[in-house]
Nucleic acid binder design. Structure first.
Ligand SMILES: [Mn+2]
Ligand SMILES: [Mn+2]
Ligand SMILES: [Mn+2]
Ligand SMILES: [Mn+2]
Lengths: 158, 158
DNA sequence: CTTCAATTGTAGCCAAAGCTACATGTTAGT
DNA sequence: ACTAACATGTAGCTTTGGCTACAATTGAAG
């Protein structure tokens, strides 16, 4: 490739996409990867507040399985990005923006999990995989997922 | 939470998993994230070699949408991890280990893509989302996916 | 055989995520 | 009121994955 004028151009069964298309796709995956952690944090903070009344930095660290300085660093990033605030020794709080994001992320998480379960993925694998997959699901895919679930719920009820 | 003996422990509709379970899940997602880029590179290198005869660093960079030093850096990591070798001005080559990984990754990529399409996700969204999702799909999920596809192929043939 | 464009490499920067080790602050219980 | 356990914060390090700018090498075409 490159300078060499492509010689025979043997076509394989799975042809490559154009450079531009492929770069666009990889770029989307990269940007999803870079927001994945923020999403996990706001979702977890919302969950903790809802189920225990507060979200403390150490609890967040333990649930994520990271050291507490790591959690504190990331929480600082949340603050910088206007997603959260903190009152020391009193826990972490979501801003309006953070709360909106948390709701979206939570809805997506549940939907992905339900689809995996509906496809017959065993419970624990579904839970674990959903934690990663959720960050890479576009609106279009979300819509397809919820329509698929509507369908399979109808089928189950018959 | 934390020191405070949990008072009423009001149960919500979606109870939290245990700390250990949740930490295990997040840990898996983190480790998948850290290998995602390696996987994309070996897959792309295999694709380029198969369809054009060689995989040059600049072509890889263009297709990924990153600068060429970034690609070269990551290729250095591939070499360090024993996945690839390079002959300057002659392209990148996969080691046996790299080739094994590339095959697995490619199979997974196709399967994820097919499942998304079967669920009714529009083509371009499916292609883009698959690029991210593929790195977070466990063996168990893969198995469920291929069984689901077998089912839907049968249904289509009826 | 020369040249010049393309490829490859190097240097040096940045931010994000992770870590350990240590320091400081709070508060629950006695 | 004290104090010890726990929460929080700080310092300083690493690796990864980005970038730009510049340098060096190669080889295709004239
Ligand atoms: Mn997640
Ligand atoms: Mn989640
Ligand atoms: Mn990918
Ligand atoms: Mn892929």
């Amino acid at each position: 490739m490159s300078r060499k004028a492509s010689p025979v151009r043997k076509q394989s069964l799975h042809a490559l996409p154009t450079e531009q298309a492929q770069a666009r796709r990889f770029g989307k995956a990269r940007s999803a990867r870079s927001t994945a952690i923020l999403e996990d944090y706001v979702e977890l903070i919302a969950d903790l507040i809802e189920s225990t009344g507060e979200a403390r930095a150490t609890d967040i660290a333990r649930r994520l399985g990271v050291s507490h300085p790591t959690a504190i660093n990331t929480i600082a990033r949340l603050k910088r990005e206007g997603l959260a605030t903190a009152r020391p020794y009193r826990g972490i709080f979501l801003t309006e923006k953070g709360d909106v994001l948390a709701r979206r992320v939570r809805a997506r998480h549940r939907l992905v999990l339900e689809v995996l379960l509906a496809l017959g993925v065993p419970h624990e694998a579904a839970e674990a995989d959903a934690e990663g997959i959720e960050h890479h699901v576009s609106e279009a895919t979300l819509k397809a997922f919820s329509e698929f679930l509507r369908g399979s719920r109808v089928k189950k009820a018959s």
